[in-house]
């Protein structure tokens, strides 16, 4: 079945812009990205859109569809009524470059601020051995495709540009959690307490666990329940729990 859908697509750049109306053909089984491509092919040849895999794995085609941060390639047209207007805008937490393309370099800057995995002493690359039960929590976070929808929807930076220097965002706090839970990470041996650092250096305290990051994650990673809250609890261990503090003073704790 084919029908004509009404689209409103944001066109413009950093100096200004607005929503433009288009009527576009929609066929069964298509996704929003297909329609954007049809727009490019038929009505707006200069429409800028970032995309790559069309399979929900590259994280390139992040945008906001009817106000909700989504991957355009994973948003089926069948979820909309045929008469419903579909509004597509660029991510609203980041500077726009042109049309649907935003400058997400904030995220790369934050990525660089997270200290990398520290190999255990005396173990060379290729010699890492760990049990599946020990590493599977971290593996959930490795599903991240870095679409930055969680960063886009997080109100800490979306609604407060001034918080960007202090707050790493859910994606990179999850990265810290991943490393802190990693059975072989030896950062503590070098004096880096990742959980405490998450709060002191990466703004974990800004997170008020309202779970929007989890809601928008296309990989269905339980960012809040499995990464951010455990990281907050680990920070409490290090900073606010006198029993754990005392235990650490008396003897070295190795979980």
């Amino acid at each position: 079945m084919t029908h004509t859908a009404h689209f409103r697509v944001w066109r413009g750049d950093a100096d200004g812009g607005g929503l433009q109306d288009y009527d576009v053909e929609v066929n069964d089984g298509e996704v929003v990205l297909d329609i954007i491509h049809r727009l490019q092919a038929t009505q707006a040849a200069d429409l800028a859109v970032r995309w790559n895999c069309k399979a929900g794995k590259c994280g390139s085609c992040s945008a906001e569809v009817n106000g909700r941060p989504r991957l355009m390639c994973m948003t089926r047209m069948s979820v909309f009524q045929p008469e419903e207007t579909v509004t597509v805008t660029p991510l609203r937490a980041f500077p726009v470059i042109r049309d649907l393309v935003t400058d997400v370099s904030f995220n790369y800057a934050k990525a660089r601020q997270v200290p990398a995995f520290v190999p255990p002493k005396g173990v060379a690359a290729g010699e890492y051995r760990m049990q599946q039960v020990d590493v599977e929590r971290s593996q959930e976070f490795r599903k991240c495709i870095e679409c930055f929808l969680c960063q886009d929807t997080c109100h800490v930076v979306r609604d407060h540009e001034e918080n960007k220097p202090a707050f790493a965002g859910p994606r990179f706090l999850m990265r810290i959690a991943e490393l802190d839970m990693h059975p072989l990470d030896a950062a503590a041996d070098q004096g880096l307490t990742r959980a405490a650092s998450a709060q002191e250096d990466h703004g974990l305290g800004y997170c008020n666990i309202t779970k929007c990051c989890t809601e928008v994650c296309p990989e269905h990673i339980k960012i809040t329940d499995n990464a951010l809250i455990p990281l907050k609890e680990r920070a409490v261990d290090r900073k606010y729990d006198p029993l754990v503090w005392l235990g650490n003073k008396i003897r070295r704790r190795e979980g």
Binding site: G12, T89, A93, R158, E161
Partner: peptide, 20 residues
């Protein structure tokens, strides 16, 4: 370039540089 209105506020999603 497309035309549009300019948001009155300059905070949050209305921060200059973001999509107007």
């Amino acid at each position: 370039m497309a035309t549009g209105t300019t948001p009155s506020s300059d905070r949050g999603v209305f921060t200059p540089g973001r999509a107007a």
